[in-house]
């Protein structure tokens, strides 16, 4: 056993330890960064998913702020209601309302309710932690699953390279609702996440923040590689980090040296079939085209 330290953790964060998220989990890092940046005057509504089941095993909760879970599709509607009450009571400027959902809740199941919330213009920040599949229930593919990724519902084999559909462009969907603030971030760059949450909460109206969170068992990576994979996704152009204010591209994370998308793929087991079969190189080239397109579209280099 290592020597017992004389220092004890002050447990000063708004998410306590003792939750059951995997070692190296990206989602729980995102949850903690978002809540710490928002501060204690915050009400959170949470969708079903990893962020709910790992933190709130009855009769316990990891959260130290008002937190409510209803159904898979409901965080946006719940947040709308809370925001309406705060508006009526004149507390809108004092209390933040944040809805948190995974990519399954955001891209697929809750999309209609989120669209409704954005249309009504409620003063809510919607945070999507994007781990690119239904990781909580056993790695089924979602609208956010990228092209050629292996999931249990899009298995790679002799006739298939995994998911045959590209990732749904949720950022464009958000922009089509004329939101005052739409951005992507990743846990690989925690200071950027904190910065974006602070910036967006100062804006009144509906906001959307999509945080790229590697999933250790779902993507088949080592726990210590969560940061590395996120950084490779950004630096290969596969996951552009951008920020739109009133529909205009306000800021972007530029890439000093573009990594080949192959480096990003080869450390993840969900893409390992691309390196095992002869047709795989062609599929990697297709993914490279997506990355190059992102770089050109947002001018990342």
């Amino acid at each position: 056993m290592p020597q017992k330290s004389k220092y004890k953790a002050p447990l000063a964060h708004l998410v306590n330890p003792g939750h059951s998220a995997c070692a190296g989990c990206g989602m729980i890092i995102a949850s903690r960064l978002v809540l710490d940046a928002a501060g204690k005057n915050t009400i959170v509504t949470n969708a079903t998913g990893c962020s709910e089941v790992t933190t709130t095993q009855y009769p316990m909760t990891a959260f130290k702020i008002p937190w409510i879970h209803s159904l898979f599709e409901n965080p946006a509607s719940l947040a709308s209601g809370i925001s309406a009450v705060l508006r009526k009571r004149g507390q809108e400027d004092k209390i933040n309302v944040i809805a948190i959902g995974g990519d399954g809740a955001t891209f697929d199941i809750g999309l209609g309710n989120i669209s409704g919330m954005w249309e009504r213009g409620d003063n809510v920040l919607y945070v999507c932690y994007d781990n690119e599949a239904y990781q909580n229930t056993g790695y089924q593919s979602s609208g956010a699953t990228p092209l050629n990724a292996h999931t249990t519902t899009t298995p790679a084999g002799t006739k298939s390279f995994g998911s045959q559909l590209p990732k749904k462009n949720m950022i464009e969907i958000a922009l089509a609702h004329n939101l005052p603030y739409v951005a992507t971030a990743t846990v690989g760059y925690p200071l950027d996440v904190i910065d974006k949450v602070k910036k967006t909460l100062a804006i009144k109206g509906p906001k959307y923040l999509q945080i790229y969170c590697p999933c250790v068992p779902g993507w088949g990576i080592e726990p210590k590689d969560t940061v590395k994979v996120s950084k490779l996704a950004v630096n290969s152009g596969f996951y552009p980090i951008v920020e739109f204010i009133n529909g205009q591209l306000a800021r972007k994370m530029t890439i000093s040296k573009q990594e080949p998308v192959e480096n990003f793929l080869k450390i993840q087991k969900r893409f390992k079939h691309l390196f095992a079969s002869p047709g795989g190189q062609k599929e990697i080239a297709r993914l490279q085209v997506i990355a190059d397109y992102n770089i050109k579209k947002f001018g990342l280099i």
Binding site: P2, A9, P17, G24, P223, K224
Partner: peptide, 27 residues
């Protein structure tokens, strides 16, 4: 400092440390 009562040993602290002050040692 870290609190080993809760540490799951993922090694992200050692990975992100810019000063290389954290090392993952066999326990």
């Amino acid at each position: 400092e870290k609190d080993l009562d809760y540490c799951k040993g993922c090694g992200l602290c050692a990975e992100i440390c810019p000063a290389k002050a954290i090392e993952m040692k066999r326990e």
